[in-house]
Design a binder for these strands. Structure first.
Lengths: 171, 171
DNA sequence: TTTTATCAATACAAAAATGTATGGATTCAG
DNA sequence: CTGAATCCATACATTTTTGTATTGATAAAA
């Protein structure tokens, strides 16, 4: 499994914004300093967040970025979606089509359902976890986080509580 | 969630070898033709498989590649491991360290456990599914596949039947 | 033996992801 | 009004991933 750099740093920057929620805007330079990455990179991430309507921005002295919703209403899935390029479309069939237009295994494909199951679990977990959950876990340990995910898994083992947006045909 | 090209095509090539198991070697050109990708790319994948001791090879006319174990004893995890570069080491802390040597969140990191949970589920599922399972699923539908994964999930919801090699510290 | 089919190893090219730089526009403080 | 701090947009450079090409070795068949 692979988490991209944008995803990792994106989540971390979002957490910085969440910690600062309702305490004035956070500047890119402040976030960069706290995360140990460049101001330019933070700016790029904020640009993506703004396009996804996750944050608002304010220029000038005392300017910076502000979450548009409270941290308990922003889930990791939204962060990932904001940062995703065209790759994470979930359309495995056209993405791995080799030299053809459509994949040679378009019908009777045994591989796709596996990716689908993994992808659904992945999305299910990310849809459950809010920025607030992570901040809470930092302070009081990860038990709550594990509980949250365990519930998710029990609700529907191989297709864990999928939001309306990612109900791929599983068969 | 992201499946790399190597992983996708690697699994598909491995399935071609599995279908041909005990029926003589499969040549790169045959596999390439069946999968709709280039011979060179297949060769590259086979090179990685051989280094991982998953296959043997035979040169010359009638040559090709042969699985070293029966398809029900080769799981997707092994395929992925064979194809993995340095990226998939599971060591998120040093991989996403920004400008520092070690990540600024080295202690009290709320993000890592999430990746760890997802990664463990991912590895757990891949460790369960054999090449034979996939071929079987192609013919008789995906019910068996889902059952397999459901069992996995029930056995240990957030850390599903992890092999000894990937028991990361979760708290 | 010669030809053909194949693998082996490595180098090369192209595309994508990652990260940095630059020249502006805006806002606020003095 | 001027200057400093900040965001904005886009271009650029670097690295990694993806995919192709090349040259050589080996095995079998004709």
């Amino acid at each position: 499994m692979h988490i991209s750099s944008l995803e990792e740093y994106g989540v971390r920057c979002a957490l910085q914004l969440a910690r600062q929620y309702q305490m004035g805007p956070s500047s890119a330079s402040k976030i960069a300093q706290l995360e140990g990455i460049s101001v330019e990179y933070v700016s790029k991430i904020m640009h993506l967040f703004r396009k996804a309507q996750l944050i608002s921005s304010l220029r000038g002295t005392q300017g910076g970025f502000t979450l548009l919703s409270p941290p308990d209403q922003i889930h990791l899935k939204q962060i990932f979606d904001a940062l995703a390029g065209k790759r994470n479309s979930g359309d495995f069939c056209s993405h791995f089509a080799g030299h053809q237009e459509t994949c040679v295994h378009f019908q009777h494909c045994a591989v796709k359902p596996v990716w689908q199951i993994l992808s659904n679990y992945f999305d299910g977990v990310l849809s459950q976890i809010s920025l607030h959950d992570l901040i809470h876990a930092e302070k009081t340990g990860h038990q709550h986080l594990h509980q949250l995910i365990q519930q998710t898994a029990q609700a529907s083992p191989s297709v864990p509580r999928v939001g309306a947006e990612n109900q791929g045909a599983l068969v």
